[in-house]
Design a protein around this nucleic acid. Structure first.
Length: 890
RNA sequence: GGGGGGUUAGCUCAGCGGUAGAGCGCCUGCUUUACAUGCAGGUGGUCGGGGGUUCGAUCCCCUCACCCCCUACCA
């Protein structure tokens, strides 16, 4: 007998589910088992259909927050789902060295111990960071394990691993040789606290109230001089020109003259520049500081102006700043303004709001700074990446990000990739004593140009994102032609937050296309950012949710379910504690359902193929609903709608299986109703529903489902590798669905009826179902399920005949197209009377509207017939209800 | 300056051309033998304001208001 058909052993006490649901008691056990059995590694033969993802490698700066947990949960749901669908799944885990971020964290740590990296030296410092990195990596790994993530840990990677570093050097050299990497002196974004250059993307702009200072410069021969406007008066010390618009009559008299720089006394030319100068702004005269403003730098290039650096890399004024030397730049601003005032050169000051750039990492105001840096010429890389999205090679989900992507890609600027940091990939550029520059994959022993040695390597490191952009292929050992690269590249889906669309996703597309010739993935799922109760998480607000704490309190499955339910297509993912407990309750519900089901199905005979058995209406109904749920879950997962998928399985399990089917078949299972065959069938259906529900739920709630699976199937740890229900092969039965829905509505009506009458929940009620109902067929279909109605509604009497006409004998109503009569041995209370009056009033409002609608020829002609028919029926029901109600109210 | 998103029940959010939904909260019942982390029922919404298109709009178009995000070299 094949294993999967063997009857369940009744005497096995391990099949009993503990009374209380305690996730902590089994989560770790299952994880270890899965991992030790290699469940996370790609299964199946080489070349079989596969599904590959790489993790967005978290920074080794600390531990994961709930936002990471969200993204990883989404990935794990996909991985587990695809695995159960029979694909050869590989999910590659790993971490990112995160140059600037990690170095900053490390420096802070050292500062607490009174240490400084400069006094330590580069090597020692880096050793310390490696220690830190190992710790952080372990923390991250253990967090992901707790969460139940199923990446292939045997393939874990780190961006500074030797082979990934080789990929970095390889690509740097290749781009350099292709002329796509160049070195030069330009004005870049500089963080004076981190003392490094940063890219445009690493600058966060914020609006701030500033001042616009108007300063008068003397101009020989022009008594009124030249008044310039600036928000940064301290930079005037580095002015090497004034600029005017060539076509501006207002400033024409300044043409060809020179001005005297106040406080400094330097004579500077007045140049004409149509690009820089906006005639409408300020005075139409602009001070030009080539060393401290990117625009001014360009003017300097155009007009061959010198660049004088007056603010140093540490944010303090340089010796060039004369009397202001060594002052902090903001202090210098005040002092310059004070001195200008003294010298009567400050013509005016006005409030001016402006956008100020801050360092993404440390929030220090970024300084435009002239320095030698390495850049990637980006346009040649961007063009193919734009095309790949245009032609659908790469698809964004949600699709709306496509436009954002194009917007940025089409206005992209060269990328400054050098960082004056220690933690990262050192730039593979070497200079010989004679000044020859060599860029090389391996450290050259001597200068290839002149043979001189020793060569000195560029002290700078690369922007972290330079290595991250290679991640989807460097993790597979590229540029070596490894087996993994052949088998698993390109990947299928990339899941990440939209906040790194430009930082990472766009650059991966560019790099992937350029270096490997193919896009690194076909689908990018950009998800929203987690917010707690509508607010951004922040430690100061104290609304941070620690994933581990949440797991300890609610269980990993509940946390995962909450995150999946919170997913939406929007830009924010709102997570609340209330949701967590709701999910925990759901897990408990599943647990208790399983406990109940086990009590009935355990030891029951194998029922075999359900299709061959005589199924009751409830059986057919729940199987049909199961089929619908399975289809819905698959559809939603394929559309990355994890909220919808979670909702579909939730409402099926709770509201249909538990509240519906289980309640319907209790008498059958207990042997109070039906024969043994019916009972066995119900057991089989219950088993099928439970097991399929576990499977459907497994990608979202892996632990509890595996735990219960073992008890119901007797197979240990196999749910993870079991087929995912697709709904195919389970009969869909619209008639049974309709009948049961009607039963449920009528049952609700009976319960309401008791409440209306102020009767006890078990007060005897008589129910009439009129054969002559608006939906006669449906009414007739209720007769075979009369037992169901009696049981669920706790009826004293049920007749399939027209209810008595006398309102005192029965209250009449139409429910789901079925005309019913109700009677309870309790007189209508005043409360009930009031309620009826309210309903009557509501009917009086709705009925005329429906009549008007149907009397409108345009409506009847143009609306779809089904809609019109629905309206007609509705009107009929309401009118009937109204007449019965008013009869009841005398 | 450009671009995008949002405004739906007390809260957090789904829905998006045919009579408004979920979870949580709140109210009322309930020892209905899986589950009080439960069961049953209920309360609660001029779907931001104003126009338009349509037989019909929360959903499409225009406009206004208020939020949010991204992007940008305007001194």
């Amino acid at each position: 007998m094949p294993e999967n058909l063997s009857p369940v052993e009744p005497e096995d006490s391990a099949r009993k589910l503990p009374k209380t649901f305690d996730p902590a008691s089994f989560e770790g056990r299952w994880y270890s088992l899965w991992e030790s059995e290699g469940r996370f590694q790609p299964n199946g033969p080489d070349g079989s259909p596969r599904f590959v993802m790489v993790i967005p490698p978290p920074n080794v700066t600390g531990k994961l927050h709930i936002g990471h947990a969200y993204g990883r949960t989404v990935e794990d749901i996909l991985a587990r789902w695809k695995r159960m669908l029979g694909l050869r799944v590989l999910w590659v885990p790993g971490t990112d060295h995160a140059g600037i971020a990690t170095q900053m964290v490390m420096e802070r740590q050292l500062a607490k111990q009174g240490l400084d990296r400069r006094t330590m030296g580069r090597e020692k410092f880096i050793d310390r960071v490696w220690d830190w990195k190992r710790e952080a990596k372990d923390t991250i790994q253990s967090q992901m394990r707790k969460l139940g993530c199923s990446p292939d840990w045997t393939r874990e990677r780190f961006t500074l691993d030797p082979d990934l570093s080789r990929a970095v050097r390889h690509t740097f050299v290749r781009l350099y040789e292709e002329g796509l990497i160049y070195r030069g002196r330009y004005v870049v974004n500089w963080c004076p606290r981190c003392e490094t250059a940063v890219s445009d993307l690493e600058v966060v702009h914020r609006e701030a109230e500033g001042s616009l200072y108007k300063i008068r410069y003397d101009v020989a021969g022009i008594p009124s001089g030249a008044v310039v406007a600036t928000t940064r008066p301290e930079t005037m010390l580095g002015d090497t020109a004034l600029a005017i618009h060539p076509d501006d009559p207002k400033t024409a008299k300044l043409r060809g003259r020179t001005a005297t720089l106040p406080l400094v006394g330097r004579e500077i030319p007045i140049v004409e520049d149509a690009i820089l100068v906006d005639r409408e702004f300020g005075t139409g005269i602009v001070k030009v500081t080539p060393a401290h403003d990117a625009n001014d730098f360009a003017v300097g290039q155009r007009h061959d102006l010198p660049a004088i650096v007056v603010i140093g890399p540490d944010g303090k004024m340089t010796a060039e700043a004369g009397e202001f030397a060594d002052l902090d730049r903001f202090e210098a601003r005040k002092r310059v303004v004070a001195r200008l005032t003294e010298e009567n050169r400050l013509v005016g000051t006005e409030a001016h709001r402006m956008s100020v750039g801050h360092c993404q990492r440390c929030d220090t105001v970024v300084e435009p700074y002239l320095s030698e840096q390495w850049f990637v010429k980006i346009q040649p890389l961007a063009d193919p990446a734009i095309r790949a999205v245009e032609d659908g090679t790469v698809r964004f989900v949600p699709e709306s990000w496509t436009k954002t992507y194009f917007e940025w890609m089409k206005n992209i600027h060269d990328w400054c990739i050098s960082r004056q940091l220690w933690w990262g990939h050192r730039i593979p550029a070497f200079t010989c004593p004679n000044g020859h520059l060599t860029v090389s994959e391996t450290d050259p022993p001597e200068c290839p140009a002149c043979g001189a040695s020793p060569l000195v390597q560029d002290p700078d490191v690369l922007d972290t994102w330079f290595s991250s952009q290679l991640w989807p292929f460097s993790v597979f050992g590229w540029p070596e032609k490894t087996k993994d690269f052949e088998q698993f590249y390109p990947t299928d889906v990339l899941v990440t937050g939209y906040d790194i669309l430009f930082f990472w996703v766009a650059r991966m597309i560019m790099a992937g296309l350029h270096f490997t010739g193919v896009a690194p993935f076909s689908t990018v799922h950009l998800h929203g950012l987690v917010r707690i109760g509508g607010e951004k998480m922040s430690k100061t607000k104290g609304n941070v949710i620690d994933p581990l704490e949440a797991i300890a309190e609610f269980g990993a499955d509940a946390v995962r379910f909450t995150l999946a339910s919170a997913a939406s297509s929007g830009a924010t993912v709102s997570v609340e504690r209330g949701r967590m407990s709701g999910s925990r309750n759901f897990a408990t519900k599943v647990w208790n359902l399983a406990g109940f089901a086990l009590g009935h199905i355990d030891g029951s005979p194998e029922v075999g193929d359900l299709a061959s058995r005589e199924l009751s209406v409830p059986d057919r109904w729940i199987l049909s609903r199961l089929s619908g749920a399975a289809r819905a879950v698959n559809r939603h997962l394929s559309e990355f709608r994890f909220d919808e998928a979670a909702g579909a399985i939730y409402s099926f399990v709770w509201h249909e299986l538990c509240d519906g089917y289980v309640e319907m078949v209790k008498p059958v299972l207990a042997g109070r109703e039906g024969d043994d065959a019916a009972r066995d069938t119900a057991r089989g259906v219950l088993r099928r529903c439970l097991e399929d529900s576990l499977a459907l739920l497994h990608p979202i709630m892996p632990f509890i489902t595996e735990e219960i699976w073992e008890k119901t199937t007797g197979r240990r740890g196999t749910l993870i590798a079991s087929p995912f229900p697709t709904g195919e092969g389970i009969p869909v039965d619209a008639d049974s669905e309709k009948t049961v829905e009607a039963v449920r509505e009528i049952v609700t009506r009976v319960r309401n009826f008791r409440t209306e009458r102020g009767a006890a929940p078990n007060a005897p009620v008589s129910l009439w179902i009129a054969p002559d109902s608006p939906d006669r067929e449906l009414a007739a279909s209720l007769e075979p399920v009369s037992g169901l109605l009696r049981h669920l509604a706790r009826l004293e009497d049920l007749r399939f005949e027209a209810p008595p006409a006398d309102p005192a004998a029965a209250t009449r109503d139409v429910v789901a197209g079925v005309a019913v009569g109700l009677r309870v041995a309790v007189a209508a209370s005043t409360e009930a009377g009031e309620k009826m009056d309210r309903e009557l009033a509501a009917l009086d409002e709705e009925i005329p509207g429906l009549r008007a609608k149907l009397n409108n020829p345009a409506y009847v002609e143009k609306a779809p017939p089904a809609v019109v028919e629905k309206t007609r029926r509705r009107l009929l029901e309401l009118e009937k209800r109204r007449s019965d109600l008013s009869a009841g109210r005398r």
